[in-house]
Structures are given as C-alpha cells and as structure tokens.
Write a protein that binds this DNA or RNA. Sequence first.
DNA 1: TTTCCCGATATTGTTAACAAAACGGATCTC
DNA 2: GAGATCCGTTTTGTTAACAATATCGGGAAA
Lengths: 238, 238
Amino acid sequence: MATNPLSEPSVTLSEQVFEALQSAIVTGDLKPGDKIREPELAKRFGTSRGPLRDALRRLEARHLVTNTPNAGARVVSLSRTQLIELYQVREALEGMTCRLAAANMRDSEIEELAELLDRHEAVVRRKAGAEYFQQEGDLDFHFRVAMGCKNDLLRSALCEDHYHLMRLYRHKFSNRSGRPRRALAEHRMILEAIRDRDGELAELLMRRHIRNARKTFEKVFSDPDAPGDNDDTEKAGR
Amino acid sequence: MATNPLSEPSVTLSEQVFEALQSAIVTGDLKPGDKIREPELAKRFGTSRGPLRDALRRLEARHLVTNTPNAGARVVSLSRTQLIELYQVREALEGMTCRLAAANMRDSEIEELAELLDRHEAVVRRKAGAEYFQQEGDLDFHFRVAMGCKNDLLRSALCEDHYHLMRLYRHKFSNRSGRPRRALAEHRMILEAIRDRDGELAELLMRRHIRNARKTFEKVFSDPDAPGDNDDTEKAGR
DNA sequence: TTTCCCGATATTGTTAACAAAACGGATCTC
DNA sequence: GAGATCCGTTTTGTTAACAATATCGGGAAA
C-alpha cells in the first residue's frame, strides 16, 4: 500500500495529510524510528511541503512524531521505560475517566458497553486469534469509557493524544499467557461498578486493571537496563 | 510594550516566535478570545507567516490557541465548565505525579521544596499581597513536584501541556477567603508525605488538595444559569 | 589503517507570491 | 424598515523558490 488517497476535497489539505500520515504510522506503513523526509512524503501525498510540515506539527503534539530542529522528524520509537511511563499516565487519566463515567455515562451507553463485552467474550471463548482481537477490543473498551466520562479535556487527552500511540504499540501491550481472559473479567467488574454508579470503585478497578497490564508487560519485557528501543523490526533504512 | 525582542539567533525562528507568542498570551498581552491575524503578528515579530503558523500549531497543542479551518486562530478562552475539567485532569495527573515523586525525588530536591514552602510561609505571614504571590507560589510547588516524579511523559504533560494554561488562569484559581493559608498547610502535609516516602498518602493528599481548590473555585464562580444546587457529578449536555 | 578535515549533496528553515475562502458593507427588493 | 444579495477587501491556505544547516563520503596526514 503505497499512497493513501487523500479524500474529502472540502476540508483543508493539512488536515488530509495529517489523517493520512497518522494512518500510515499507526498501520505500520511507516515504522517507529523511520526518518521522515519532507520532499519525499510531500510528493507521495501529492502536495507541497507546507501542509506536510503543518501535519507534522500536529503529529508531534500527539507524540507520534519527534522533531529535532535542523535535523528533521522521525516516527516516534518508545523505549521500554517510556512505555511504562505511558502505562502510568493511563492509570491516572483513565482512573479519573472511569470515576466520571460512572457518574455521567448514559444508561444507553452502559448497555452498549455491556454488549461490547459480550462480543468480546464470544471471541475469547472461540479462542480463534483471541489475543489479537482482544487487543483491539481492549482499546475499544477503554475508548468507550473515555467517551462516556463527559469531560471533554479528558476525552481529548485520551482519545486524541494517547489513543493512537496505544494503537501503535498495542502488539506490545501484554496479550500473552491468558491475560486476555483475565482482562475481560476485569472489564466486566469495571462495567458492573459503572452500572452501580459507584465511581470510587470504578476508578479503583480501572487503575488496578491498567496496573495489572503494566506488570504483565514489565514481566514479559524484563530486559533490566537495555535501551529497549531496538529489537525485532528495526533500523532506519537508508 | 509592543514587540518582544526575539533573542537567541542560533535557535530556529519558529521556536523564537513560539516562545514570544506564548509569553504574550500568558502575560496578558494577548487576551483570551483575541483573534490572531497572521500578517499582523508576523510583522510584529519581524518574520514571515511560515514560522508564525508553525508556532500557532504548537500553541494549539498546548491548548493556548484554538484554530478553526478557514476562520483563523484565537487565544483560548476557557469557560467555567472547562476550568473545572482542567481541575479534574490535574487531580488525576498530579495525584500520580505526587505518588511517583514520593518514590523518586532526590533528597536534595525534597529539601529545596521545604525551603520553598518556608519562603511561602514568610510571604503569607507578612500578608502583603499574599493572595497574588501565593498564586505563583502554588504553581511553583506543583511544578517542582512534577519535576521530581522522574516520569518524563507526566512531567511534560504537566510542565509543558498544562502549566501555561494554569498560569493563564491563575487569577481565577481560588485565592480568596483564607485559601492561601490553607493551601500552604496542605502543601506542608504533602511535603511530609513525600519526605516519608509514602506515595499512597502523598497521592491522596495531593488529590484532596486540588479537589479543595476546585470546590472553592466552584463556590466563588457559582454557575449563574444553573437551576438548582450544583451537582458535582452530573453534567447537562452542552 | 585510522583519524581528521573538507567539500559536494541533500534536507530543513524561511520567504514572498498566488489562490481560495470568509468577512463587511452597500445596494436592492419586498 | 428588514432582510437578502452582490462585490470589493481582508484573511487564510498553498505553492515554489531561496537560504542556511546538517549529512555523507573522499582524501590527506599521522
């Protein structure tokens, strides 16, 4: 898949490039650590460097791109330590989110969340590709809780600033050794707390849930003091 | 004073414009809601529109500027609701920050924090302009805790993304009716918890501290068009 | 061979001009 | 007189060229 189409002519070009680039990063078309050469990408998207630079700045705000003055931009590449830091931020943010969701989510939203978990359960029961789908499903669950908290600043911090970063690294978010099944059980407990409108419990459970995911991650990737950003698929090509 | 000098020739122009514009916003030279006309500001800073637009995108990431396509940028103007949302985000983020600071702050940093509080106490004792200085001091305290948490993602979220927004609205952050004195006492308790390396307590106290500030704010700026009593948890659609 | 310096080349930073869209005011219609 | 419509102006979006900086490779000296 070389070039993204850049649809929707009415909206601004910067916007389209932004969406296309973000998509390219999250889907792995551009890999972590890849250098971003402005002329090359501009030509690829059929635009000039102006809108491209504009898009780069926005991606920088979402931590999907890092920029060093006079040296150019690269697709972000998180070390093990940074991933752990992300878990900690999520624990804080999503804990609060969940507390607010218990207070502010609409009954209909709660029911939809329950149905979502039912579908996840069916997938996990079938066992077929459970790990992978559970990854997407996990993000989906957290996404919906964020949408339900009715705090716009929190929602945007999660769904816009951090969500795509999580998507980018979801394959590293622990999905082994029966974790999907446990995660689903934790989701169920959180849902029940929200249903009971028990914000305090909902927050506690969400924090524990994310903390558990972090601990599993730390165990699986237990390189003590390796830099972390280099392993399987790697190296800025040329 | 009309024009900021744009010092430091070695660094990039975008960077300088970014700093100057941010300063102009936080100091009140540009006021919330002000329209930002690119040609005007570019001329004021003695640059072209390119670097200015670049700076605008970065300020957008820090929520200091809002941009609507084809209609231009404005200095952000937070509603009462949005300010409350900011308090909630701070409660979550700074709670975690404080927990980590208790674990990771160096002894020397803790001592400097203690000295800072001593200075604040002297100011508050003298009563002279206590409210104002306590504002800056309060931010200073929170800033240092964030610096001490040793989680770079958290630190940047607080010190870069939200700090300047808080500075912009610090005069609205409750500083009346003896709150500075109480805030100082709360700071002292937080410091003690950090000193004891008691992360759990430090987080609890910091969250309570910010929650108290929020409640005072909500009382002082009570919603004019809210019908009944204020409900902490419920929020009508906007 | 290794190291350092230097210049060719590529990439980023910046500018000014052009295109398109929004804004404001005067005029016209009802 | 109220409201809609058109047109000139202003402002934003986009482009291509120019300037400054960094990168890379080759060659000279130790």
